[in-house]
């Protein structure tokens, strides 16, 4: 199957190899939460809600000098092409919850909120490849909306290598092609990598190219997230009457 058309250079959906899908972010979708956001990457739609900082529910887990960050990832029954009932505690969800938690924990200034708990809940409404990245981006927005102090914005993007070309932001069809899939999460301003995952195999020099491409994708998303947050702040300002 040709993932990059040799005659035109376009991918299956008409993008060029280093084009990202259309992204959209919205803040404040869940009114009851302290912070929430909706993030879309192409057809992948994710809602993140943040509750906290609040009192620790389970006293046994309380940490005395920093906040406890908890995260839960779940997919809706209708999120994928074929509808399946998903038990909440299955392995893939647990793994992704862990990944998101670790990524966000690295950027939240947890020592500012000891003995408290910050809950991040991520719900996938539609999955079309790149759910991990969309979740992290949504979580970043939601945390910003909740006003939780962070070191920097964390953004994430995935890249792959099919038909001998590095491709940015794989969708579900390209992801299931069985080629390598590299997910990168970086701290936007300080340029530090906080998340790096890959499956399948790649020779080292090609891997460098693919990772570089993913990092550039992350930077572009960071740019967009900054704009969204700026818009939101302006809106709040105007509401406040400033």
């Amino acid at each position: 199957m040709e993932y990059v058309d040799s005659l035109t250079g376009f991918r299956l959906d008409g993008r060029r190899p280093n084009d990202m899908r259309q992204i959209r972010g919205e803040i404040g979708v869940v009114a009851k939460a302290d912070g929430s956001a909706l993030f879309e990457m192409g057809n992948t739609k994710v809602i993140a809600a943040v509750y906290g900082p609040r009192e620790v529910q389970n006293k046994g887990q309380q940490i005395n000098n920093q906040a406890l960050v908890r995260c839960e990832y779940s997919m809706a029954n209708f999120s994928t092409g074929d509808r399946t009932r998903r038990p909440k505690g299955d392995r893939r969800s647990t793994e992704i919850s862990l990944v998101i938690r670790q990524t966000m924990e690295a950027c939240i200034l947890v020592h500012l909120m000891p003995r408290s708990q910050i809950d991040i809940f991520v719900q996938v409404l539609q999955a079309d490849g790149g759910t991990r990245s969309a979740c992290i981006n949504a979580a970043t927005l939601a945390l910003a909306d909740a006003g939780i102090p962070m070191r920097d914005l964390v953004t994430s993007c995935s890249a792959g290598y099919l038909s001998s070309t590095p491709l940015l932001d794989l969708n579900y069809v390209e992801d299931s092609a069985g080629g390598p899939d590299v997910t990168v999460g970086i701290l936007a301003k300080t340029d530090k990598v906080t998340l790096l995952q890959m499956d399948s195999k790649l020779p080292i020099d090609i891997f460098e190219n693919v990772m570089q491409l993913a990092i550039e994708g992350c930077k572009a998303i960071a740019q967009y997230i900054r704009e969204v947050l700026l818009e939101n702040t302006k809106l709040l300002e105007s509401r406040k009457g400033l």
Partner: peptide
């Protein structure tokens, strides 16, 4: 008909 309460709605909906 199945209804699922997402944990985003309230923290107490987390897990089970």
């Amino acid at each position: 008909i199945f209804v699922d309460c997402s944990s985003t709605a309230a923290p107490m909906f987390e897990g089970r």
